[in-house]
């Protein structure tokens, strides 16, 4: 009987094998997050997780564009939501984003690997610059990466080197650009408040 895998042991093995990797603090709340130093380490880390540590279940691939802060005036509505009375004050105008958010011009990628036998998971983090976002594809190791990488490519513009079919998946063909990036200014229309 093998000893059950723990996320601590997995994280320690990752830190040992990948140079300059470190534990992300704060990472995803209540989970262990390992931040890789460079895209070169990704394949090795994924193979280590899958082959030796039993984390063969790729649950999620996603990314966050940390360009900020967003201007929310006119978006989070400041209008009185009740059209039948003009006496009630509307909800307060949302304040600007809080301090302490780590805005920087990067795309922060996130992978989640699960060990189904022991029910534990480990998150991998990797930062890539917004103007040259390229990481190796995991589609060769995990079929689950196929569509999820296409989704991240479509919505955030990260190129996955070695992906067999890196094409748009969710947005229509006539749309240029990557909608989940933060560099779109909102144009007010009839759906927005005053």
């Amino acid at each position: 009987m093998k000893t059950p895998a723990t996320r601590e042991a997995a994280a320690a093995a990752l830190l040992e094998r990948c140079s300059d990797a470190r534990l992300a603090e704060p990472g995803v709340k209540n989970y262990l997050t390992v931040r890789l130093a460079s895209p070169k380490d990704l394949l090795a880390a994924a193979r280590l997780l899958k082959g030796e540590l039993g984390f063969g279940y790729l649950e999620m691939i996603t990314a966050v564009d940390w360009l900020g802060p967003m201007k929310l005036e006119g978006l989070v509505s400041s209008r009185n939501p009740n059209p039948f009375t003009d006496k009630l004050p509307g909800p307060p105008v949302p304040p600007a984003a809080g301090a302490g958010a780590p805005y920087r011009p990067v795309l922060d990628l996130l992978w989640s690997f699960g060990n189904l036998r022991d029910g534990v998971k480990v998150f991998l983090r990797l930062e890539v610059p917004r103007d040259h976002p390229e990481v190796p594809s995991l589609a060769g190791e995990f079929a689950a990466a196929d569509w999820q990488e296409r989704e991240v490519y479509d919505l955030l513009g990260v190129r996955f080197a070695g992906h067999p079919n890196l094409t748009k998946i969710l947005t229509p063909d006539f749309i240029n650009g990557h909608p989940l990036r933060k560099d779109y200014a909102h144009e007010k229309d009839s759906y927005d408040g005053d």
């Binding site: 999620m60 966050v64 900020g68 967003m70 989070v76 949302p94 984003a97 809080g98 302490g100 989940l180």
Partner: peptide, 30 residues
């Protein structure tokens, strides 16, 4: 407060997960 959390549930069709990222603002950052 600024931070991020992941929660997942066994939905009818499988493991539904939400990654919520906050920058401390009134709306989700991502």
């Amino acid at each position: 407060a600024a931070g991020e959390a992941y929660a997942h549930v066994e939905a009818s069709r499988g493991d539904l997960g939400i990654l919520a990222v906050s920058d401390g603002g009134a709306a989700p950052f991502r």
